[in-house]
Design a protein around this nucleic acid. Structure first.
Length: 214
DNA sequence: ATCCCGAGGG
DNA sequence: CCCTCTGGAT
């Protein structure tokens, strides 16, 4: 069980992440809000790198909800077979495209209700879309952010919703819009699940983890 | 709580 | 081999 980081330590951590990377963005590749939405749905329990490899062919072949809907479930599956959970994802994306066309004029809705009503879209995906496309101060708690928040003592919680609320409470307002991306990148490249790379961690001295490796 | 499920790393 | 990767639906 990690101790909680102090308010001052948290502020200093975000100052450093900001200084090192002033405008962090997702590593998912996309050319429109629709494509970001699909990419995030595909990224469940999969790496961004793997998703990008698939979408580099999928998106040119079907750039819009109309085109992707007409590809159909089986057509979509052909492009994403290299991604885990691909059958479920192909089904969800095909249905998601139809719903976008029928209920939202082919546009990505900008409210949580409508987003979470889409197949394959839950709280985490809705939060990513609201933050990345519509620049709302949401915190999407994925596997990385859940781990990092608990391990560092940044915003501990027993489930993802608890961690989300803790982050919204504890992250300084001026960093809230970009905090999501800094935490993801930190979790992906430094504070990794197995044997975290504490040597060379930007916030090592601020971290309350009980299992630091240096 | 369980299922879905391929690729890459250690 | 086992673990992990920007989860969601049942």
């Amino acid at each position: 069980m990690p101790r909680n980081m102090t308010k001052a330590a948290i502020a200093e951590a975000f100052r450093r992440w900001h200084a090192a990377n002033p405008e962090p963005t997702t590593e998912l590749e996309y050319g429109s809000p629709f494509q970001l939405l699909v990419a995030v749905v595909l990224s469940a329990q999969a790496t961004d790198k793997g998703v990008n490899i698939a979408t580099r062919k999928l998106f040119p072949a079907a750039p819009t909800p109309e085109a992707m809907a007409s590809l159909g479930e089986a057509g979509i599956a052909e492009y994403i077979k290299t991604i885990g959970l691909y059958r479920t994802k192909a089904k969800n994306v095909a249905m998601l495209c139809r719903q976008l066309l029928e209920r939202h004029g082919g546009e990505v809705p900008d409210d949580r209700e409508s987003l979470e009503a889409l197949p394959g879209v839950g709280r985490k995906t809705a939060n990513v879309v609201l933050n990345t496309i519509f620049r709302q101060p949401t915190m999407a708690v994925d596997t990385h952010i859940f781990r990092v928040s608990n391990r560092m003592g940044l915003a501990p919680g027993k489930d993802v919703v608890a961690v989300e609320k803790a982050l919204l409470r504890r992250v300084p307002k001026e960093y809230l819009l970009d905090a999501h991306h800094w935490l993801i990148l930190h979790g992906r490249y430094v504070c990794v699940a197995r044997s975290p790379k504490c040597a060379g961690c930007l916030v090592y001295d601020l971290c309350e983890a009980s299992d630091k490796t240096v």
